[in-house]
């Protein structure tokens, strides 16, 4: 249960709050953390809210083709920025417009599966994370942060990625309902073709493992081949080795494993 709320105005105060209370919980948009804290029956906890930081962690910057998103940027702000049109299908698949007014980029990174569809897209886009802590700033690949999380006392400040070449980004989310429904399987991919064959592929999966993950087996099945039904189906089947599906209220592990190849193929080919 929630015993106290702190809303620090500087990052130094955030680090201090986290290290002085080992049970303190970071709250960004609160879409997952606040219900957990208010409805939970666990030990008394302090919430450390990031929403009053003066550090300006909610900025969107586009410099040439490099996009930098502050970790506290609301998903609805991304949706309204025409420069980020490539992310439109990703954002439309996350919750509802009302939820997206609260949800943040950073929160989507650390939420437990099957949530975290923006993180899946950012991993496919080869994003990097700027992490700040008491010892300074560090840059790590989004893929590593998605897999391993952050050391306690560190805070994700921003995520950067290069806008993909037009037509190279694919995104597909399979869910129980058309809108506002958690992932059964999410597939994000950046596929670059040259001379009629796939030159490079970054494929990321969500909903089929505890954390958003790369799909190296699926990527290997594509590179050097033309992107067609045969190669897309091979990639889909290969993707099963990259997944570690779990059972939850939305789908069983068996079902996720069974349909993943279909959704990988559909993401790659659009059908």
């Amino acid at each position: 249960m929630l015993a106290a709320v702190r809303a620090p105005e500087t990052l130094v105060d955030v680090f201090q709050a986290l290290t002085s209370d080992p049970d303190a919980v970071l709250v960004a948009g609160g879409t997952i953390a606040v219900p957990d804290l208010t409805l939970g029956t666990g030990r008394r906890t302090t919430a450390v809210a990031l929403s009053r930081l003066h550090a300006g962690l909610d900025a969107i910057a586009v410099d040439g083709d490099v996009v930098t998103l502050g970790a506290m940027t609301r998903l609805s702000a991304l949706e309204r920025d025409r420069r980020l049109a490539v992310l439109a299908p990703v954002l439309a698949a996350i919750g509802s417009p009302t939820l997206r007014n609260s949800a943040t980029v950073g929160g989507n990174f650390f939420v437990a599966g099957p949530y975290g569809d923006l993180a899946v897209a950012l991993v496919a886009l080869g994003a990097t994370c700027t992490i700040v802590g008491p010892d300074g700033e560090a840059i790590r690949p989004a893929e590593a942060v998605a897999a391993d999380g952050l050391a306690r006392g560190s805070v994700l400040a921003a995520v950067s990625f290069r806008l993909p070449a037009p037509g190279s980004f694919r995104f597909r989310k399979a869910a129980r309902r058309r809108l506002n429904s958690a992932s059964i399987a999410t597939v994000a991919a950046v596929v670059v073709e040259a001379n009629g064959v796939v030159e490079s592929a970054r494929i990321a999966l969500g909903g089929v493992a505890p954390r958003p993950c790369r799909a190296p087996s699926a990527e290997a099945a594509l590179v050097g081949r033309p992107l067609d039904t045969a190669s897309a189906e091979a990639a889909g089947v290969a993707a099963r080795a990259d997944a570690a599906p779990f059972t939850d209220a939305y789908a069983s592990a068996w079902y996720r494993d069974r349909v993943l190849p279909v959704h990988v193929r559909r993401a790659l080919l659009g059908a």
């Binding site: 929630l2 609160g30 606040v34 919430a47 809210a49 009053r52 009302t98 007014n101 609260s102």
Partner: peptide, 11 residues
């Protein structure tokens, strides 16, 4: 539009 159950009012 915001869901009030998700907001810590002290912030």
């Amino acid at each position: 539009a915001t869901m009030a159950c998700l907001c810590l009012v002290e912030t």
